Simulated scan of single mutants.
Amino acid sequence: MTLELIKMIIFILLGTKVAGHLCNRFNLPVVFGELTLGLLLGPAILNMVQETDGIAMFSEIGIILLMFLVGLESDLNLLRRYLKPAIIVATFGVFVPFIFIAILGHLIGMGTPESFFLGIIFSATSLSITVQVLKEYDYLDNEAGSITLGAAILDDTLVVILISIFTAVVTFDASVGFTATMAWDLIGKKVLFFFIMYLVAKYFITPAMNLSSKMNAIKAKTAMALVLCFAFTIFAEEMGLSDIIGSFFIGLMLSSHEHSHEIETDIDTIGNSLFIPVFFVSIGLGINIEALYSQFGLIFLLSLGAILTKLMGGYFAARLMKVNRKSSFVIGSGMVSRGEMALIVAKIGQESGFITNEFFTVVIAAIIITTLISPLLLKFSIGLEQNDNDEVTA
C-alpha cells in the first residue's frame, strides 16, 4: 500500500511539473494543466493514479495548506475595505444559481427536495481554484481580487448554512417544533467560531509565535503556525464550517505578524512541492468517460447553467456596487469554479439520498467541467482588464 502510494505520488509530481511548464509556455493557467493531468492520469484514461485513502489524505492536507497560504498572503485591511461588495457578490453568487439550477432540476423531472439540493450543490464556489489563479497573476491585492476572495469565502459559509437549513426543514418534526438544538446548529456554532477566532487573534497568536521564536529548534515558528492552522481546521469542522475556512482565517490572522513572510516561504515550499499538486490532480480523478458520452446532453445543460448563473450573478452584483465592467467580469469569472466544495456537497447529497447514484456521475462531471473552464475564463477576464489598464496608462 505504501509503495503504491509513493508510486502514484511520483507520477503526480513529475506530471504536474511538466504540465506547469507547458502551461507557462502556452500562457495558460497552471492549475488548468494540473486539473487536466488528473483526468489523464486517472481511471478515465491511463489509470496510473486512483482515488485511494492515501491520495485523499495528501489532497486534504494540500487544500488546507493552500488556503492557509492564501490567508498569509492576504491583506486584512484590503478585505475589510471591500467587505460590503463582497457580501453582495456572495449573496448573488449563491442565490442566483440556487434558484435557476433548482428550477432546471424540476424541469428535468427531479422532485422538489432533490431539485433544491441540486441548486445548493451548484451554489458553491471553489475558493481554492479561484485563489490559485489570482495568486498566479498577482491579483489578490487589488479591488477585483479582494472582492472575489471575500465573496468566495462568504459563499462557502452561506452554502454550509443553506445545507443546515435544508436538512432542518426536510427533517422538521412539527410536533416538536423549532428547538434550541436546531438554532445552535444553524447559527450558534458559526457565531462561536468567529468569536473564538477573534479572541485567539487578539490574545493568543502573538504570545504563541513569540514563544516559538525563542525556542532553540529548527523551524519552530513554522511548526507553531502549522499547529495553529491544523487546530483551527479541526475547530471549523466541529463548528459545522468547511475546514478551509479555519485554515484561511488563521492564516489571515498571522499575515500581520512580523515573521509572516518567513512562515509563508516555508509553507509555500512544503505545500507546492508535494501536497497542493496532489489536491488539484485529485479533482480530475473522478471523471467517468462513459458517462460523458451517454449523458452528454444533460451534462452540457447543467454545466452551461452552472457557468452562466455564477458568472452573471457575480457580474451584476459587482456592477450594482459600482465596480467597472471589466473588473465585474473578473469577479463573475472568479465565482464560476465549483471544485472541492461542490464535490463535498454532492457527496452529502448522494449519501442522504437526494442525488441518485446514476445522476451523481452527471453532477460530478458538470462540477469538473466548470472547474476546468473556470481558470481559462478567469485568465481571459484578467487579460481584458489588464489590457484596458495598459491602454489607460499609455
Rank of each mutant, 00 (worst) to 15 (best):
L3T: 14
E4W: 09
M8Y: 06
I10D: 10
L14Q: 08
V30R: 13
F32V: 10
L35I: 02
T36Q: 08
V49A: 01
I64L: 12
L65D: 02
M67R: 05
F68M: 05
L69Q: 06
S74P: 01
L76Q: 15
N77G: 13
R80I: 07
R81W: 09
R81D: 10
L83E: 12
I87E: 08
I88T: 11
F92H: 04
G93Q: 02
P97W: 04
I99M: 10
I103T: 04
G109W: 03
M110R: 15
I120M: 02
F122A: 00
F122Q: 00
T125H: 01
S128Q: 05
D141P: 14
D141L: 15
G145K: 05
S146N: 06
A151M: 04
A151H: 03
D155H: 01
L158G: 10
L158R: 11
V160Y: 14
I161C: 09
L162Q: 05
I165D: 10
T171E: 15
T171Q: 13
F172S: 07
F178Q: 06
A180W: 15
A180S: 14
A180N: 14
W184T: 12
V191C: 01
M197H: 09
V200F: 07
N210H: 09
S213F: 08
M215Q: 14
I218S: 15
I218E: 15
I218L: 14
K219V: 14
K219W: 13
A220C: 07
T222K: 03
T222G: 08
L228C: 09
F230Q: 09
F230T: 04
I234K: 13
F235L: 09
F235G: 05
E237F: 11
S242R: 12
I244V: 12
I244S: 03
I244T: 10
G246I: 06
S247T: 02
S247R: 02
F248H: 05
S255W: 11
S256V: 13
E264C: 12
I267S: 06
I267K: 06
D268L: 13
G271Q: 04
G284L: 01
G286Q: 15
I287H: 01
I287F: 00
F296W: 12
G297D: 10
L298Y: 09
F300V: 14
F300N: 11
S303C: 07
L304K: 11
G305S: 07
K322F: 10
N324A: 07
S327N: 13
F329P: 00
G332E: 03
M335L: 08
G339R: 00
K347M: 09
F359N: 03
F360L: 02
V362A: 00
V362L: 01
I367T: 01
I367L: 01
I373K: 05
S374Y: 00
L377V: 04
K379F: 09
I382T: 08
L384E: 11
E391A: 14
V392Y: 12
V392S: 10
